[in-house]
Nucleic acid binder design. Structure first.
Lengths: 344, 344
DNA sequence: TGTTAGCACTCTATGCTGTTGAGTGCTAAC
DNA sequence: GTTAGCACTCAACAGCATAGAGTGCTAACA
C-alpha cells in the first residue's frame, strides 16, 4: 500500500505529539489539537492502516498509538522540518568552541559538555583516530635518573607523553641528540606508517649553540603554575548504587548521582577532611546532601607528606570494618610505593 | 542512662543484621539468630531503652528497629571488629597498585577503580594538592611558529603541560636556554612559594655540547606510538536520562547507564559509523543493548580530514530536527576552527 | 464512495477494602 | 529481673469495582 498525503500528515502529527508528551496519542487528541479537518473516526481508519504498515504501534488494546522505529525513520528522511538555530544559539555555540581552542582534546571535551547541556541528553565526543596524523616533532626529556619523558607532537597539535624507564644512565645532552634524530627521521610521516617502518640508523650528530633568553614567555609561567595547583579527582562505581535497596527509587538514585556529578563540590568536601582514616556517618556530614550517606576516607602520602585522599561513599548501612581495612591497606600500599623513591 | 553490656550486645546484633539485610530487625529475629540467651520480650524491653537513648529507630510503629547514625558511630568507635584482609586480597591489592606505578596520576586513577570493585560502592580518589610539591624541572619545547609547550615536572613525578601562545618568533635554542635558567632559578622550591616570588633576573648563559645517542630508548618508541593511536572518548549528561519518562524505572535506567559505562564498547560503536550526520533509530542499531535508543552522530575534520565524532544518545523519542541542527552546527564550527590552522 | 456518529468493547489506572503477618507494648505470672 | 500471653498497630498485598481513554465496527449520511 502506498502512503497517502493524508496519512503522512496524521503520522507527522502523531510523531510531533509523542515527541512532546511521551504519551500514546489517541484519535480524538489528534483531531482536536492539529487541525487536520477530519473526524476522529476517519483518523482511526487511517491509523489502522498505518499500524498495518508498521509505522505505529499500540502499547495495549485500548491505548493510543506510539510511533514505531519505521515512523521515525520516515520522519527523519522525509517529514522533518529543518530546525533553524537562532542567532543567539549560534553565538553561544561559536563562543564556547572558540573559548577552548588551545588544544584539540580540550576543545572536544568541552564540546561534549556543551552538547549535553543544549540537548538535555547524554552526549559524547571522540578525538581523532590518530593513525592518519602526521608526526611533527619528537622530544625526549629527562625526569630522573631512570626515567625519561617521551613526547610526540603531531601536525594537528596533538601532544602525547609517556614516561619510559631507562636502565642505562644518561645525560640530558644524549636525549637532545636523540630527539633531533628521531624527529629528522620520522617527521612528515603518518603515525601508522611509522609503526610499520624499519627503524634505527645512525646519523651524524648535530651540535648547536644556544643564544639568548626570550623573556616574553615569563608572564605565562605564573598562571601555569597556579593552574597546576589543581587536584585531580577520580570517581568510579557510580552505578553500584543501583544494587543497593536504599536506592531502589528513581528520586533517591537521581539525587545521589547528581550530587556526585558536581566534581568540584566533592573535591572540596574531600580536601576539608582530616588526615588518616576518617569515617563520617549520616548527619555528621556537614553537607546536607550527604545526610543519608556515610563517607570513609583515608590519606596517602608521597615522600612522607600527606597529600592525597582515597575513599568511598555509600548509605549509612555499610560494612564499615571491611571497607575501612581495604582503604587503609590501599593507602598504606600507595604511600609505601611512593616513599623516598629515586632519592638521589 | 549508661549503656549496659547486654544492650551493647543487642545493639551490635541489630547493626550486624541490618548491614546485611537492609531490613528492620525485630526482637524475634534477634533472639533466634544471635544466641543472646534471652527471650524476645526481654529484648523488646532493652530495645525500648535503646530507642529512647537514640541508638535505634522504628520506621513505623509495627516495624522492627533500624540503627540510627548514633549507633553506627558507637559501632565504629567501640564495637567494630577489626576486619583482617586475607592474604589473597592483600596480594590482589598490592599487585594492582604495583602494576600501575608509572605515574602518580595513573596509580591513583586505578586505585579508585579497584576500590570501587572491592567494595561495590562508589569510590573516589584525589591526587595531591600540588602546592607542597617541590619543583624539579622546567622545560620549554617548540611546537610551531607561535606555540610553545611549557612543561613543569615536580619531585613527586608530577608532569604538567600547557601550551603557550607566543607573539615573537623564536628558535629552539632560545627555549633551551630559557628552560635551563628557569630550572636553575626555581628548582627545589615549592610550587606555591614560587607563585609568591619576585621573578626574572638575568643569568649567564650556559652552553653545552652534546655527545652520543642512547639507543636503548628505541624499543619503547614503537609501543608508545601504538598507544598513541588510541582515541579519547568524552561523555556528559549521564544523569539527564533521569528526567525522561522512558527511564523512570530503575531497571531501565540501570541498564542504560551500565551500557554507557563501558567506554571501550561505545568507542567501537562510534568508530564504525559513517562520516557526516548519521541517525540510527532503535532496531537499526546493530547493538542489541541500543535497540531502544536512537543515536545521532556527526563527524568533524582537522585540516580537511574526517577524524572525530560528536553525538548524542537517547530514547527513540527525541527532537531529531533540533538536535541534528545543533550537532551539525557544532561539528562545522570545530572543523572550521581547525582548518589549515598555522599553515607554514 | 468516502466520511462520520454512535455504540459496545477492551484495557489500564486508581482507589477502596479486607486480610495477613510481622512486630510492638503492656500486664501479669514466674 | 525475666518471660509468656495478648491486644494492638501498621505496611504490604490481593481482590474488586469504577472511571476514563481509546479502539473497532456498523450503519447512516453527503
Amino acid at each position: 500500500m502506498d502512503i497517502s498525503e493524508r496519512k503522512l500528515k496524521i503520522l507527522q502529527a502523531i510523531i510531533d505529539d509523542f515527541i512532546h508528551s511521551a504519551e500514546p496519542v489517541g484519535s480524538r487528541t489528534l483531531s482536536k489539537k492539529y487541525n487536520l479537518g477530519i473526524s476522529p473516526a476517519t483518523i482511526r481508519n487511517e491509523m489502522a492502516d498505518l499500524e498495518e504498515m508498521g509505522y505505529i504501534k499500540q502499547p495495549h488494546t485500548s491505548a493510543g498509538r506510539v510511533p514505531a522505529d519505521k515512523a521515525y525513520r520516515l520522519y527523519v528522511d522525509k517529514l522533518m522540518d529543518k530546525y533553524v538555530l537562532s542567532e543567539q544559539q549560534k553565538a553561544i555555540i561559536g563562543k564556547k568552541i572558540m573559548d577552548n581552542l588551545v588544544e584539540l582534546d580540550s576543545t572536544i571535551e568541552h564540546a561534549s559538555k556543551l552538547l549535553s547541556n543544549l540537548t538535555n541528553l547524554t552526549a559524547f565526543a571522540m578525538t581523532p583516530k590518530n593513525d592518519e596524523n602526521i608526526l611533527k616533532y619528537i622530544k625526549l626529556v629527562p625526569i630522573d635518573k631512570h626515567s625519561v619523558l617521551l613526547m610526540i607532537v603531531t601536525e594537528t597539535g596533538n601532544v602525547h607523553n609517556t614516561i619510559l624507564k631507562i636502565e642505562n644512565t644518561y645525560t640530558e645532552e644524549n636525549l637532545n641528540v636523540l630527539s633531533k634524530i628521531l624527529t629528522y627521521n620520522y617527521k612528515g610521516k603518518t603515525l601508522s606508517s611509522i609503526t610499520k617502518m624499519e627503524i634505527i640508523k645512525d646519523f651524524e650528530e648535530d651540535i648547536e649553540t644556544m643564544s639568548r633568553i626570550m623573556k616574553n614567555v615569563m608572564p605565562n609561567f605564573l598562571s601555569t603554575l597556579e593552574n597546576m595547583l589543581n587536584v585531580h579527582l577520580y570517581m568510579d562505581g557510580l552505578t553500584n548504587i543501583f544494587s543497593l535497596p536504599e536506592y531502589y527509587n528513581i528520586e533517591k538514585a537521581k539525587e545521589f548521582l547528581e550530587m556526585l556529578n558536581q566534581k568540584e563540590h566533592i573535591a572540596e568536601v574531600l580536601m576539608n577532611r582530616d588526615s588518616g582514616v576518617v569515617i563520617t556517618i549520616g548527619q555528621e556530614n556537614p553537607d546536607t546532601e550527604m545526610k543519608d550517606c556515610s563517607l570513609i576516607t583515608a590519606t596517602y602520602s608521597i615522600n612522607g607528606k600527606t597529600v592525597g585522599k582515597l575513599g568511598v561513599i555509600g548509605p549509612t548501612r555499610m560494612k564499615y570494618s571491611k571497607i575501612t581495612s581495604i582503604i587503609e591497606y590501599m593507602t598504606d600500599n600507595i604511600s609505601n610505593a611512593f616513599k623516598l623513591k629515586d632519592e638521589d
